[in-house]
Design a protein around this nucleic acid. Structure first.
Lengths: 174, 174
DNA sequence: GCCAGACCTTTAACATGTTAAGCATCTGCC
DNA sequence: GGCAGATGCTTAACATGTTAAAGGTCTGGC
């Protein structure tokens, strides 16, 4: 199969992106009702599963780059949802954990989260869903192996988007 | 099956995100060699399949929000890869298309793109891959239906992250 | 013909993704 | 013990995602 050409808009990365977006769309109203972004919720969920996590560990578990994490954590601290401790034997490290308030928020949101997930699982079908999990696990396992060497990369300085974006003022007299 | 609790880091949105990232990692060196970001490449690919597209159409096909698109297009114009035309009968609309140079770039990159995809398909396995496509298509079709009403949403102004992020200076004297 | 509302695109403001560099601390080796 | 390099986190700079609003333009109903 695979046919000749799958049109680009249905390419694998595109479909994975769409699928994720479709799933998240179900959860977003619930998160937004508490003024949480997707990413903030990931942080809270990751911390809810353990007592405490170092930044790099947390980063790995919630798939947020350490640099982004470093930028977003102060807001969550300020809000009183997470707190920061010093590592016992290594002054370089920070250890994050949920505050009592953070845990309570998680507890309060838990039931509805699970209800949304249950509805989702019902709509998709349990069999299909577990098959999908299995395929994603396999895909990730297959592809991530040779990637030990190179991490993510972006174009360097000279990239296309470098010019200031004011050239279109020439066009505004249409 | 689905068992009791799938740990959060392997939740569906998370796995979809990881899978996409794993796939894109294979293409990124190729794109970066030409100083193109993922998104810029999506724009070029979308335009390569037709003569011309209006902004909203382009946005839909490459899954980039019109506002983002509006911001990134001038750089691609400046670089001489795409050009903008006026719509014949509707002055509100812009119509984008690839320049000769843009088409040449796409042609030049095509073979290696396909080679990377072929290697990917080989590693994953043709059967698995087409099964995966089918499941993603089904998932998207299932979930996107009731979503006609609400588009994406983010927390409103009062969100958690509103405070300036300078509170951690109190911590730097650790 | 005119006008209210819909539509298309852009802009602004903010949050997050991404890379590179900076800074402090730690670790292994001498 | 001291020092070079590794490690953990942060910051800076830029690109992109996301929302709301602004500015033209169009359309349908009158």
């Amino acid at each position: 199969m695979s046919g000749p050409i799958r049109p680009f808009e249905r390419s694998l990365p595109m479909q994975l992106m769409r699928a994720r977006e479709a799933v998240m769309a179900r959860f977003r109203p619930h998160l937004n009702a508490r003024n949480l972004s997707d990413q903030q919720w990931r942080i809270i969920r990751a911390l809810s599963e353990t007592d405490a996590l170092e930044i790099v560990e947390l980063s790995g578990r919630c798939c947020i780059h350490p640099a982004s994490l470093s930028r977003m954590l102060p807001a969550l601290e300020q809000e009183g949802l997470v707190k920061r401790h010093n590592h016992a034997r290594d002054q370089r490290r920070s250890v994050m954990s949920l505050t009592v308030r953070g845990r309570r928020l998680f507890r309060e949101m838990g039931p509805e989260s699970e209800a949304i997930y249950a509805a989702l699982a019902r709509d998709i079908g349990a069999a299909r869903l577990s098959q999908l999990y299995a395929m994603l696990d396999a895909l990730i396992a297959t592809l991530e192996q040779p990637a030990i060497v190179n991490r993510k990369m972006r174009p360097r300085k000279t990239r296309v988007a470098k010019v200031a974006s004011r050239a279109r003022s020439a066009r505004s007299k249409r």
